[in-house]
Amino acid sequence: MNILTCVKRVPMTGGTIVLTADEQAIETRHLGFTISPHEECGIEEAVRLVEAHGGESVVLTLGPAEAEEQLRDCMAIGAARAIHLVTDGEEWDPQATAAAIAAAIHADGTAFDLILFGNESADAGNYQVAIRVAYALGLPVVSGIKGISVADGQVRCERESNGGRDVYEVPLPAVVSVLEGLNLPRYPSVPGRMRAKSKPVAASTPPRRESRLARRRLVVPAGQGKQAEILGHGPDAAPRVVEILQQIGLL
């Protein structure tokens, strides 16, 4: 079976977020980049399904030239090739993103049985690109999935709800958006990284639809930087900790 997984390059922010002076983006000069944990699980699942059922695992991103780094990371885990929709670095709104991804899937020509997304992107969290792509392609879409199995041309999806799991069974081809916890993604191996260097990346520059969810500015919410009251150092602090627990009424 052929599986496409869509991933988005995002900065690895640490303990605090610093914005650029124009308040349009996160200051990333000293940051590394990654993809969402949900998408990592998507890549891992695609590789496992192809190991079990045969076929090809393909990874796609829409992002700046530097996003090739994330495509190589995904190919190091096992994706066979990549599709890179190159932008000038500015974030596209979810409608424009979905339109470009759907057009790229058409243009690629591969009959993908499964198209995997993260349930929400790490940074924007729009909760919608997967669903929009599914409508553009006329495919069924299941969201927020933590369990996938494929048999007899059907995908069986499990989604957590009210302490149990709801089951959806959908004929392939289908779009599925996944959540972290679906599997435990492997780390890329050194030989995997070596092989990834020579795997093909098909790059193109798609036209951009006008933003209808247009960012004005980013704001770091108030409330950070309160400094904790230090109760003590080492085990000697234990009596103070227990006093606090008693004060709150927990003991």
Partner: peptide, 20 residues
């Protein structure tokens, strides 16, 4: 960085502080 979002802090090795 967690000390900048926490209300209370203990500086020390969790392997000693937690059992205490």
């Amino acid at each position: 960085p967690i000390f900048a979002s926490a209300d209370y802090g203990v500086i020390g090795d969790l392997r000693e502080v937690v059992p205490a």
